[in-house]
Design a protein around this nucleic acid. Sequence first.
DNA 1: CTGAAAGCGCTAACAG
DNA 2: CTGTTAGCGCTTTCAG
Lengths: 398, 398
Amino acid sequence: MKIVSNNFANVAHGCRCVLGAGAMGMNYPLQSMSRTPTPRRRATLASLAAELKVSRTTVSNAYNRPDQLSAELRERVLSTAKRLGYPGPDPVARSLRTRRAGAVGLIITEPLNYSFSDPAALDFVAGLAESCEAVGQGLLLVAVGPNRSVSDGSAAVLAAGVDGFVIYSASDDDPYLPVVLQRHLPVVVVDQPRDVPGTSRVGIDDRAAMRALAEHVLDLGHREIGLLTMRLGRDWPHGGPGPALADPERVRTPDFHVQSERIAGVRDAMAAAGLDPNSLTVVESYEHLPTSGGAGADVALDANPRITALMCTADVLALSAMDRLRARGVYVPGQMTVTGFDGVPEALSRGLTTVRQPSIEKGRRAGELLHSPPRSGLPVVEVLDTEVVRGRTSGPPA
Amino acid sequence: MKIVSNNFANVAHGCRCVLGAGAMGMNYPLQSMSRTPTPRRRATLASLAAELKVSRTTVSNAYNRPDQLSAELRERVLSTAKRLGYPGPDPVARSLRTRRAGAVGLIITEPLNYSFSDPAALDFVAGLAESCEAVGQGLLLVAVGPNRSVSDGSAAVLAAGVDGFVIYSASDDDPYLPVVLQRHLPVVVVDQPRDVPGTSRVGIDDRAAMRALAEHVLDLGHREIGLLTMRLGRDWPHGGPGPALADPERVRTPDFHVQSERIAGVRDAMAAAGLDPNSLTVVESYEHLPTSGGAGADVALDANPRITALMCTADVLALSAMDRLRARGVYVPGQMTVTGFDGVPEALSRGLTTVRQPSIEKGRRAGELLHSPPRSGLPVVEVLDTEVVRGRTSGPPA
DNA sequence: CTGAAAGCGCTAACAG
DNA sequence: CTGTTAGCGCTTTCAG
């Protein structure tokens, strides 16, 4: 009566039944074994249709177009589905047929533990997740972390079952960029790199924002400024893993646009104030450690003890720098002005002078751009607003 | 010369060409237009094979079994693939055929912005992501947030193209639990609920850990204890959205095992010390706000002003409570002992007396259990170690 | 080393 | 409202 698969023996030892299909196996809980005729193999839409003696279309309709069949028939379909343990149409097969995966891929090349320790990055992910959720899309974290080789990571990109990608803050020469592009799927870039052909981008005006902040600092009377930033290039030409002075040449040819734009903003303000932009002491950090800012502050003050203001390209750097300064007995803002960038909650609550950027909104817009691309089909660049927050960590130089 | 898709007018203003295939469109960057004969439609393995005049098997082998064909042929395949803009085998089609999706689904019912604001939850996700990355699996955040109806969320669970699920700290009656089980895929539960048939679980001994911590508090001499916890049930029978006193009945019949186990741990210690466990003042919070702990502290001290120790089931609650106490002019630990749970970095750096649990390891083990299930095929329960951390927030009562 | 045949499980026209 | 017909793009025996 029942048609039996020829590929699988009917395994039925003990309390559960393991049908081998793939490495992971599938668990049939106890109940389904005693209650129902154990299915020889996983139920499918076709087997359900056969059981019901209706066509596959009808079963499919029962799930996807309830209005296309009578309520009773639908009920009958659904209940025998339950009896057979049929979980509904297979997502993968459906995806193949409908040509939509129901998920967007998120590419973050930075170590996840970093991204997860920077509230600004997290806010971005939360915003993206929110917009995906709103349209019922899943969010796939693609396995491209630094623990894997680039070729493994590329394989993951190539193997991701997604309808599009979001690239979060990658360097100009990120090795996964071409791989992502190769998929010919819609792509939205967040922050950097700029000018990826055919892809939309959402970001902020880093240069203008940082310039406004620097003007505030200069207005207060500061003339010797130190700047702490994350690494400017994918490479790391310095000795140890700790923060290091960046020479002008390196500042001029960055892989990470965002960082260099922010530096450029400071230099703009300095030039406008009649200062030599090259007098800016730039220190870059390679690792994203909770103490990176503090270590960077040490390097900067070592290189130029006359610094009276420390500007940082991220709040996390600034907060760490503040902790370090306190430990060194340097009073903020009395003896040292410190500024950040991002406007994360802890920074705001600690009164940091900083630039607030809408990180959540960034994620949300990136998602929306993917879910409903602009009518024109042309890539767009969305520049979100920022705001200088004058806190309690900036004041006139001593 | 140029061949144009028949569904869409040939859009070619400015810099790019849009070929329509699916709602989202595919972007062909400028180069591919001028360089190569624009493909009528997306290249497939079959079309590549036809172009090369070899069989599909051969092309497939070029990608999946390099040793099955000559290096030259393989090179030829790969290069014409590049020329045609063929991104390699379609992940979805491959998944259908191989019966493996290459991703695990993560089910978090709590609002994502909460999970993303609790470092312990984040650590868990980071650990899970790490273990997935190690085996090249993607991590799919399934869209089941509180912004969507349960039926939408269920659809997302049913539609997730994954090889297994991780359920993070759900209530006993979480509506997505049965839906997940229905998929007949491997499932690993983290923390709660317990005893899901046929699924492995990883967690800690919440009761024993909390009991040990409570013993420390009692040893210090405290007799009147307040306990701050997250909500005990999926429902919220109290008036406003703020924290509220939980009556013994509600403490006894919880939906969230973890919370009630931790409470039970405190009661165990109290009973052992000769105190009436029912004298414990329990306050539960519904929302996961940064200020929830503080508000809870207010409620607890209001209900029982003689409280000298405030035990919290999460560090985030305890830290918030400490902030609130300071604002009220209550000195910790001089006038009030405060304890937490989790051992998140901020808590440790602020000297909170707490229980450290290995959140990252939890995520890692959950992933590993999914990726390489126990040989026996039987579900396992992994109980990870915890450790009481005596900090600077606990001392003898005033 | 290469090719032919046979689906994986499903949905989308289009007829009845 | 229901069934028939065609694939979606790929991998995998199994023969040459």
